[in-house]
Deep mutational scan, measured.
Amino acid sequence: MFYPNSPQTSPQLTQIPYGQQYAMMQRQIQQPYHPFATTEPQARLYPYHYQGPIQQEQGGFITQQSTAASPQYVQMRVTPVDQSIMSGYPNQTANGSSSSSFNYNIHPQQQQQQQQQQQQLRHHAMPVGSVPLQDDRYRKQLIVNYLAPDVTSTDLHELFSRFGELDGARIIYDKQTNMSKGYGFVYFCHAEDAKEAVERMSGYEFHGKWLKVGYSTNPLNIVPSNSSPYVHAGSRGAAG
């Protein structure tokens, strides 16, 4: 039997160049792979992502010199942007860049009308829970959420009447099932009393439920100042 490094198959040491006398086997001759043993700084910083320098080929596509990437890492192929796409944008300079302001050559009167329309939209648009300043009635009506099913309009009136005089209180019921929808409205005579009720009743436990109280901004629920107070009856038909 002959071994790869046996004296019968191995040459004389004098015939082997210096430095390879003890590297006779194939696994010894093959050098191990060192990912950080390279002179390129990109490979030292990113050993798993770097795959060699990027070269520009004919046709405008950018390719990489090395083989496919590892399945664990996804390499994105980048193509140059066609400058003709950006030619339609206004205020574009000769080098292809555009300024931040756009001039669509709008007539001054049209621009003024658009600004007025935007101001009107901001004036009428009102986020949930906010209180408008032009109508004091919005500051007097509250919406009470997360009410228990057994709470009546009379219970709601008695709960909030300790903060001040009320114009009314009612629970909203479903017309088909005649069941409470879980929320109601309270109408105060003074805005200061309503503000105190919002601050003190939010998070209050009532009939096993934690109440959420806020201003009601729905104009359909506003009680006119010259109208008669609501009837605080315990029956659902009268309260709904």
Score class of each variant (00 low, 15 high):
residue 83 Q to S: 06
residue 106 I to N: 13
residue 118 Q to F: 09
residue 225 S to I: 10
residue 178 N to V: 02
residue 19 G to W: 04
residue 200 R to I: 13
residue 28 Q to G: 03
residue 113 Q to A: 13
residue 27 R to K: 11
residue 41 P to V: 14
residue 50 Y to D: 06
residue 74 V to D: 14
residue 188 F to I: 02
residue 164 G to M: 14
residue 9 T to R: 05
residue 23 A to I: 10
residue 155 D to S: 00
residue 36 F to I: 06
residue 179 M to K: 09
residue 185 F to A: 05
residue 211 L to D: 13
residue 10 S to H: 12
residue 205 E to C: 14
residue 124 H to A: 11
residue 95 N to Q: 10
residue 201 M to K: 00
residue 60 G to P: 10
residue 70 S to W: 14
residue 232 H to L: 07
residue 206 F to Q: 07
residue 110 Q to D: 11
residue 55 Q to P: 05
residue 45 L to Y: 02
residue 104 Y to V: 06
residue 96 G to C: 05
residue 153 S to A: 08
residue 199 E to T: 08
residue 166 L to F: 10
residue 96 G to F: 14
residue 95 N to V: 08
residue 75 Q to D: 03
residue 25 M to W: 10
residue 107 H to Y: 02
residue 17 P to C: 15
residue 114 Q to I: 08
residue 184 G to C: 09
residue 10 S to N: 02
residue 31 Q to F: 15
residue 148 A to D: 14
residue 234 G to N: 15
residue 165 E to W: 09
residue 74 V to A: 00
residue 21 Q to G: 13
residue 224 P to F: 04
residue 26 Q to N: 15
residue 169 A to Q: 05
residue 115 Q to N: 04
residue 166 L to W: 14
residue 7 P to N: 14
residue 40 E to S: 02
residue 13 L to Q: 13
residue 175 K to A: 07
residue 238 A to K: 14
residue 123 H to G: 07
residue 227 S to V: 07
residue 196 E to H: 09
residue 186 V to Q: 11
residue 226 N to L: 07
residue 227 S to N: 12
residue 87 S to W: 15
residue 160 F to V: 04
residue 81 V to W: 10
residue 100 S to E: 06
residue 38 T to M: 15
residue 32 P to T: 09
residue 196 E to W: 00
residue 174 D to S: 06
residue 148 A to Q: 03
residue 28 Q to N: 14
residue 199 E to M: 00
residue 127 P to S: 13
residue 114 Q to L: 07
residue 11 P to F: 04
residue 232 H to Q: 08
residue 4 P to S: 12
residue 218 N to R: 04
residue 104 Y to K: 07
residue 167 D to G: 10
residue 173 Y to E: 00
residue 25 M to V: 11
residue 25 M to C: 00
residue 42 Q to D: 12
residue 209 K to M: 03
residue 221 N to F: 13
residue 64 Q to R: 04
residue 223 V to Y: 13
residue 147 L to F: 08
residue 206 F to I: 03
residue 228 S to V: 10
residue 237 G to A: 15
residue 131 V to S: 04
residue 30 Q to E: 15
residue 71 P to E: 14
residue 166 L to H: 02
residue 120 Q to T: 10
residue 103 N to E: 00
residue 155 D to Q: 02
residue 227 S to Y: 05
residue 66 S to F: 07
residue 162 R to N: 15
residue 211 L to H: 08
residue 94 A to I: 09
residue 200 R to W: 00
residue 225 S to C: 06
residue 136 D to G: 05
residue 120 Q to D: 05
residue 30 Q to M: 15
residue 179 M to P: 05
residue 167 D to T: 09
residue 104 Y to F: 11
residue 58 Q to P: 14
residue 25 M to G: 01
residue 69 A to Q: 11
residue 8 Q to G: 07
residue 159 L to N: 13
residue 158 E to C: 15
residue 226 N to G: 12
residue 26 Q to E: 14
residue 81 V to Y: 03
residue 58 Q to R: 03
residue 176 Q to W: 15
residue 153 S to E: 08
residue 28 Q to R: 07
residue 140 K to N: 15
residue 239 A to M: 09
residue 43 A to P: 01
residue 21 Q to R: 02
residue 101 S to V: 13
residue 162 R to D: 12
residue 141 Q to V: 09
residue 119 Q to D: 00
residue 51 Q to W: 13
residue 201 M to C: 14
residue 91 N to C: 07
residue 59 G to N: 05
residue 126 M to Q: 11
residue 3 Y to C: 04
residue 168 G to R: 05
residue 123 H to E: 14
residue 74 V to F: 15
residue 61 F to M: 00
residue 198 V to G: 05
residue 80 P to A: 06
residue 67 T to Y: 14
residue 79 T to Q: 12
residue 221 N to H: 12
residue 133 L to N: 06
residue 36 F to V: 02
residue 33 Y to M: 15
residue 162 R to Y: 10
residue 230 Y to S: 09
residue 69 A to H: 11
residue 79 T to A: 03
residue 128 V to T: 12
residue 118 Q to G: 08
residue 189 C to F: 00
residue 124 H to Y: 01
residue 192 E to C: 06
residue 69 A to I: 14
residue 135 D to Q: 14
residue 41 P to S: 09
residue 159 L to S: 04
residue 20 Q to Y: 00
residue 125 A to N: 02
residue 62 I to Q: 01
residue 109 Q to I: 08
residue 57 E to L: 13
residue 194 A to P: 10
residue 49 H to D: 12
residue 2 F to K: 01
residue 72 Q to I: 11
residue 100 S to F: 15
residue 212 K to C: 09
residue 82 D to Y: 12
residue 192 E to D: 01
residue 105 N to R: 10
residue 74 V to T: 01
residue 152 T to I: 07
residue 70 S to L: 13
residue 157 H to N: 12
residue 229 P to Q: 05
residue 101 S to H: 05
residue 197 A to L: 02
residue 72 Q to S: 08
residue 93 T to G: 13
residue 180 S to D: 07
residue 142 L to K: 01
residue 135 D to I: 07
residue 56 Q to M: 15
residue 183 Y to C: 00
residue 16 I to E: 08
residue 37 A to D: 10
residue 182 G to V: 05
residue 16 I to A: 02
residue 139 R to I: 01
